[in-house]
Nucleic acid binder design. Structure first.
Lengths: 210, 210
DNA sequence: ACTTCGATGTGACAAATGTCATGAGTTGGT
DNA sequence: ACCAACTCATGACATTTGTCACATCGAAGT
């Protein structure tokens, strides 16, 4: 009997998968959560054999949870289950030595297969991502530049950004200028777009919406 | 026996729900698709009693399919199943007289309940959305202003926007200025954010990503 | 007929933005 | 010890943006 834990914030998928996994004779879902913190607390208690983690969940991301599990060095294996192929996520997952990385763009039977395979000590990664691994651009921006760009993304003026980061306005403009030249664009809007497309900048998407 | 059709592009959810619905004695999934066009073709053939449609699917949106079903005037009832509360979508769905509108942020049992209820002739809408219905701000921008803002959202300069829309640069700046004052902001970036938050501007989110 | 509103345009002006050169202090690596 | 890269800063300059005041024209409404 393989014990499972599921962290997935979309209730529809969470409950559907839970019920589906329970139908398998050799699988048992010992718990589930809709946010990262609850998941982490539960995992410490329950110590399941496999933790299925969505990345984009509130509070603490699935990758954060994976890191902690790695650090704790328990026998719990991690299967990341995420929406779409994002190289940066995948790389972090590989670094956290997760046992599996599956896209939601796969049928649910694949998840069941993956669970059984990782329990046999295998590592199962979505092939799309492994291929991409070599063609992905790496973030050319320094952390400071990224911070400036993140402020710019809020729609703030140079002056306000400077105030927020305790810099002079001139410095902020220099950073922006450096960013543009690195990204091959000529204004903040485009820079933000490029950075978001490449996932160098988080898509916080504002107050409402989602 | 209630016959169902499922249009949902996320394979994991599609297959999980299909299997789950099949487990119910009174429900039978006669088909499913991952894109709108296939769904429409199938629906014409299969004529299920209930069509469960995701909105954001490739090709033809779930709402487009709902419109066509409405126009065809068959007995197929529509249940919209979508990710998050977006007022504009909901309003369009209400206009298309869908029988149900459910968020993926609900457990899968709710979907089963909803299906049974709509078959009894009831209309089931997610309460979150009905409440919002009255507080939703209406778009103060004219269609021309929206077009200008959409161009600005691409990261284009005033000059380029003017060229694209066959306007003078001055006119474009006037529009932008009018937009800012209507939205209570002072630059394009903020205007774009506000417009997107209120779903007056589509979140196209660029080349990659998703 | 008169008014309002949207689409479109100009010109002028102030403020913000982007570019470039240049320099100094720090840190990490060879 | 030296170099490269990152952080932070100025100053000067050109360009872009954003604001304002006006003006014309057509459609819609009173």
């Amino acid at each position: 009997m393989i014990t499972l834990y599921l962290a997935e914030d979309q209730s529809m998928l969470n409950s559907a998968l839970t019920q589906l996994l329970e139908l398998e004779d050799d699988l048992h879902v010992v718990g589930s959560a809709r946010d990262g913190k609850t998941a982490w607390v539960d995992l410490q208690q329950l110590r399941p054999q496999v933790a299925i983690l969505d990345i984009e969940i509130p509070g603490m991301s699935g990758l954060d949870v994976a890191d902690r599990l790695r650090a704790a060095d328990w026998e719990t294996k991690v299967v990341i289950l995420t929406t779409f192929a994002q190289q940066a996520y995948f790389e972090r997952a590989v670094n956290a030595q997760v046992a599996g990385y599956l896209l939601k763009d796969s049928p649910s039977d694949d998840l069941i297969d993956t669970i059984r395979q990782v329990m046999q000590g295998k590592t199962v990664y979505a092939p799309e991502l492994v291929v991409n691994m070599f063609s992905a651009a790496t973030n050319p921006l320094t952390s400071r530049e990224l911070a400036v760009l993140a402020e710019a993304d809020k729609g703030l003026s140079t002056k306000t950004i400077a105030a927020n980061l305790y810099l002079s306005a001139g410095t902020v403009r220099n950073y922006l200028s450096a960013i543009f030249s690195k990204l091959g664009v000529h204004n903040r809007l485009e820079a933000i777009k490029v950075a978001k497309d490449n996932k160098w900048l988080t898509n916080e998407s504002g107050t409402k919406g989602g």
